[in-house]
Write a protein that binds this DNA or RNA. Structure first.
Lengths: 211, 211
DNA sequence: CAAATTTTTGACCGATTGGACAAACGTTAG
DNA sequence: CTAACGTTTGTCCAATCGGTCAAAAATTTG
C-alpha cells in the first residue's frame, strides 16, 4: 500500500543516525558552505563511513535540504510570536532579545542561513519570496498599526525588521570578527549582555543625547 | 640584482591581465566562497584558459589573497575618515551614509568579506586582531570622548560600530533576501534611499514616539 | 534456532579539482 | 631577418569529488 509519496516509516536506528548526520552536517555546512563541504567531511564528523551516510541520505543536497527546512521553522519562530496583544515597545524589545539569544545559542544555524543567502539563496528562493515575505508583510502591518496609534515612532516597518535581523545575527555570523575586535576581556562571555544593553538603548532612544 | 624579494616588475600586459583576473575572481569568489569557487570558473569569467590564468597567479590562494589585501584598505576607509573635528552627530550620520553607499556600490566586496568571516576568517585572522582592532579601539576612544562631552548618548562605542557595520552591510550581504521580502515595488532601486532614511532615524532618535 | 531484513563497509566509478609542463605562438629589440 | 623574451594553450597528472554496488555484518522477526 506504499505509494512512495507518503512519509517514510523509519526504524529507531534510522531516526538516530539521521539526527547524528544532520548534527554533523550542520557543523560542516555552516562553516564551509554547501559547495565547500564534502560528504567525507560530514561522514567523518558523524563518525561513520561515506557509503553508510549515503544509505540514510542518498544525495548531499538531501541533507542540506532537510537542514534548511528545519532551520526556517525555528528561525522565524520569534517573528511569528510578535503579537498585537502586548505593549508595542515591550513586544519589540522582547523580539530583539529573543533574536539575540538565538544568535548566541544557535550560531551555526544562523551561519548556515547566512551562507545560503550570501550565495544567492539558490535553494530557498521560493521560500523567501513566498512564506517569508508573507510573514514579514503581516508583521509589518502590525507594526504600522502601532505607528498609527502613536505607540512607536513612524518609520519603515520592513527596514525596521531588517535592522533587527542584521544587528542580532551579526553576533553569530561575524562572531570571529566581534571577538577579535573586542579582545579577550570585552570579547568574553559577557559580550552578549553588552550587546543586549546596547541594542535596547539603540532601538529605544537612538544616539541623540538626552535634553 | 633581483633578490626575489623585491616588488616584481610587470609589463603592461601583465598589469592588464592581472586586473582582469581579479575582477573575474571577485565576481566568482563573492558568490561561491573560496572553496566553492574553481579556477576554471574564474578563468572562464576572465575570458582566458586555465593555464593562462595560472601564468599570472600561480595558485588559487594567491588570487584570493591579493583580493583580500586590496579589499581591506578600501573597506575600512570610511571608518578611518571618522574624525574628531566635525559635529559628532553629523560625523556619525555621514559614516553611516558612506557605509550604506559602499554596500550599494560594492556589494561583491562586502560579500567577499562576509564569506571570509563566516568561514572563520582563516586567511585574515591576524589582520582582524591586529590592524582592525587597533583602528576600532582608536575610533571607540573618539566616540567615548563625544559621550563624555555630552554630544551623543552614553553607550558602548564598540557595539555601536558593530551595529553600523551590521545594518549597512546587510543590504549587500543579504540583498537577495531584502529584495525578495520587499517585493518588486519597494525592492527596486529606491530601497537604498528608504534604508538610508530609516537608519538615520533609528540611530538618531530610536523608536520611542516623540512626546 | 533460522530466515528475513536492515545496516555497514570496501572497492570502485566517472567527473572534477588544482596545478605542472613543454611546445607553440606573439612581440619586440637589435 | 633573427634571437630573445613574453604570452598562450593542449595535454597531462594525482588527488578529490559525489555517488554506486555487491557483499559482509548486524539486527529483527518468526
Amino acid at each position: 500500500m506504499n505509494t512512495g509519496t507518503e512519509a517514510p516509516r523509519r526504524t529507531r536506528i534510522q531516526q538516530e543516525k539521521r539526527e547524528l548526520i544532520l548534527e554533523a552536517a550542520l557543523e560542516v555546512f555552516s562553516t564551509n558552505g554547501f559547495r565547500g563541504s564534502t560528504i567525507d567531511q560530514i561522514a567523518e564528523a558523524a563518525g561513520m563511513s561515506k557509503p553508510n551516510l549515503l544509505y540514510y541520505f542518498r544525495r548531499k543536497e538531501d541533507i542540506h535540504e532537510t537542514l534548511m527546512q528545519r532551520l526556517l521553522d525555528t528561525w522565524l519562530a520569534p517573528l511569528r510570536e510578535l503579537d498585537d496583544i502586548g505593549d508595542p515597545m515591550t513586544e519589540l524589545r522582547s523580539y530583539i532579545r529573543r533574536k539575540l539569544e538565538m544568535a548566541r545559542d544557535f550560531p551555526r544555524e544562523s551561519r548556515l542561513f547566512a551562507n545560503e543567502i550570501l550565495q544567492g539563496a539558490p535553494r530557498i528562493m521560493p521560500l523567501l519570496a513566498g512564506e517569508l515575505k508573507t510573514l514579514v508583510d503581516e508583521k509589518a502591518a502590525v507594526i504600522k498599526g502601532w505607528m498609527r496609534a502613536g505607540k512607536i515612532a513612524r518609520t519603515d516597518p520592513w527596514h525596521l525588521i531588517f535592522s533587527i535581523w542584521a544587528t542580532t545575527q551579526h553576533y553569530a555570523d561575524f562572531d570571529v570578527q566581534v571577538r577579535a575586535v573586542l579582545g579577550p576581556n570585552r570579547g568574553g562571555d559577557g559580550r552578549f549582555e553588552d550587546a543586549a544593553r546596547f541594542l535596547e538603548q539603540l532601538f529605544l532612544d537612538g544616539l541623540k543625547p538626552k535634553g
